[in-house]
Write a protein that binds this DNA or RNA. Structure first.
Lengths: 224, 224
DNA sequence: CTGCATCCGCTTCGATACTG
DNA sequence: CAGTATCGAAGCGGATGCAG
């Protein structure tokens, strides 16, 4: 794949030359939540081989999408981070999440789910039209410290914000449960009953939680 | 590639399973301008092999992104068209065009350019903030009938519209020249002088043409 | 002519083993 | 921890064949 080129004068073709090989866009997605080490990426991408990961990172670095940073002495290691050009992919990635979300219905229960994917998932599925004027602090369970964000509804749409602040209610839940809640496949009460969530604060705000998002699941797999 | 799956519960991974193989997204891009026959696609995708094109189309059809339509008797042929699910990719594709456009600076002059790519390109590069209150009818030269669209500036951004209507000026040009004009790499007068364009109407509107678009070219290839 | 299927030589992928 | 080396398997591009 070394330096494959489509013989096309087209921005989509240029983007595909950089991104449309196996694993590549998933590496970029993982780096959107912050810099990662080689082995962190390997863990987050079950099935990738070391050689392919090394090759993808080298190419993304060469093309200016990713940069390598050496950490200061105590941590004798280096991390990979998105460059400005890489971060500019955010709108495209958000739209791809919105599109790909319709295929999440056919859930494959053994699939891996990184907690760090949840914030971008919620941001992508945030309702763009008027949504309930509620604010919910969402705490994504990670096994260690939860990821904290706030989901804010309003007349101009739902926003997802990473800074702390006041909220009508707090919802702490497993990554899977959060996605199901946002998709409206589950209610907060059901998630609590199943031990996948803890809630505090205004029950009405939590009842409106799925109203803060929009999701268009595919009816079902067309040909199984 | 037959039915490769990432073991990830993530919309980006689901989308990549469908789209992130070589040629696949370019097929979708070409179908956005309307249904095409197998051989039309082959012509628009120089370098693709017949077997890969057939396989990609079969997969896209199976996954519900593309559908095959049999044309009525006189034309004993069939065409491929996007389904509703396929058309839902438009926002993602637009954002990918915006991102990929920054790599168009390193122009490879022998690259193929389909006139049908131009409308989506202009739509993607349309300025999103306030733009000059001008309307320009754009006629993309194709070798046969030109593709006609209108570019409309205004305080809420530039819109690209496919219906005919009044315009301050008319700009008929080669596909390459149109992209260069939108990118601000060329002025209308220069394009005319080079025989790549014809203009009519308000010269001021044409002078503002590149102001209707925004493009952020990469400074240069980071490592050649 | 259109829409593939088949075969061949080359590239890429995934899994494992190994090294600084 | 962060890769490189290696090898069988799968994918790809190009040519050819062939049915409708």
């Amino acid at each position: 794949m070394v330096d494959f080129r489509y013989a096309q004068l087209c921005p989509v073709a240029r983007a595909c030359e950089l991104l449309a090989s196996r694993w590549t866009l998933l590496i970029v997605r993982d780096l959107f939540a912050g810099p990662l080490r080689f082995s962190d990426l390997q863990r987050a991408l079950p099935g990738i081989s070391t050689s392919v990961l090394a090759e993808r990172l080298a190419h993304l670095e060469q093309r200016g999408v990713v940069e390598r940073r050496e950490l200061p002495p105590p941590a004798a290691s280096s991390v990979y981070a998105l460059t400005e050009t890489g971060r500019a992919l955010r709108p495209a990635l958000i739209e791809l999440v919105r599109w790909g979300a319709r295929f999440m219905g056919a859930s494959r229960p053994d699939d891996h789910l990184e907690p760090r994917w949840v914030p971008m998932g919620l941001e992508a599925m945030a309702r763009r039209g008027p949504s309930p004027a509620r604010s919910v602090e969402v705490r994504v369970r990670t096994g260690h410290e939860p990821l904290v964000l706030r989901v804010l509804g309003g007349p101009t749409g739902t926003r997802v914000c990473h800074e702390p602040g006041p909220a009508d209610a707090v919802l702490e839940a497993e990554p899977r449960a959060l996605l199901a809640l946002a998709a409206g496949l589950l209610t907060a009460d059901q998630a609590v009953a199943a031990g996948q969530a803890l809630i505090q604060g205004d029950p009405a705000a939590l009842g409106d939680f799925s109203g803060l998002f929009e999701m268009n699941l595919q009816p079902s797999d067309p040909t199984p």
